[in-house]
């Protein structure tokens, strides 16, 4: 965001003379699935950087609005703001999803902060088999298989999903609580 020269947030796109952010907004508004930065760049015939700038602008526009811009990796989706959940829920006639067990939540936390992660890595942290919890999280669509680790046995790698972000009202993984306290530098945290 820091540099201004060269990039123009208000640059016009190739999509009918509207600003890039407006075109991006329009596409995300009608999209029924997450759309990637590259897809948007191709659609609007602008550089991915221009899309990134437009996303910053869009994110600012949605402050205090009923909409929210969600990002998972390179994929984007326009969603209702978590604060508006009650109204939307009533409209959709949806009930709240049932509670997650402590085991499922611990497993989910490990996947969220350490992704992509293998079953064995989760087990090493929890000291118990995460099989049940993982099956539950997979069934709820909060976690998905994203590939395999290229080591002996090629274990499956798990990551969180868009549904995870939605279910917890997060705009991106960066909004996870205290991300810096978890991970390698944990040794310093001896209180």
């Amino acid at each position: 965001m820091g540099e201004t020269q060269g990039r123009n947030v208000w640059a016009e796109s190739d999509a009918g003379g509207v600003p890039v952010w407006a075109a991006v907004e329009a596409v995300l508004f009608v999209a029924e699935r997450p759309v990637t930065v590259n897809e948007l760049a191709k659609l609007l015939r602008v550089a991915p950087d221009a899309i990134e700038d437009a996303l910053v602008a869009l994110g600012e526009r949605y402050q205090g609005s009923g909409l929210s811009l969600q990002r998972h990796g390179d994929a984007l989706q326009l969603v209702s703001h978590p604060r508006a959940a009650a109204a939307v829920q009533r409209f959709l006639g949806r009930e709240l999803s049932s509670r997650l067990s402590p085991a499922a939540l611990e497993t989910l936390a490990i996947v969220a902060y350490r992704q992509p992660v293998t079953r064995a890595q989760i087990e090493a942290i929890r000291g118990v088999s995460p099989d049940h919890a993982l099956a539950n999280l997979l069934a709820r669509g909060l976690v998905e298989e994203v590939g395999r680790l290229e080591t002996v046995g090629r274990p499956i790698l798990y990551s969180t999903t868009f549904e995870f972000l939605r279910a917890f009202g997060l705009n991106s993984l960066r909004e996870l609580p205290d991300p810096d306290e978890f991970g390698r530098a944990s040794r310093a945290d001896q209180r």
């Binding site: 999209a31 989706q77 959940a85 939605r166």
Partner: peptide, 13 residues
């Protein structure tokens, strides 16, 4: 967070 029920909804396919 989960129990606060503040979840986001995407456009319904």
């Amino acid at each position: 967070r989960h129990e606060r029920g503040e979840r986001a909804f995407a456009r319904q396919a």
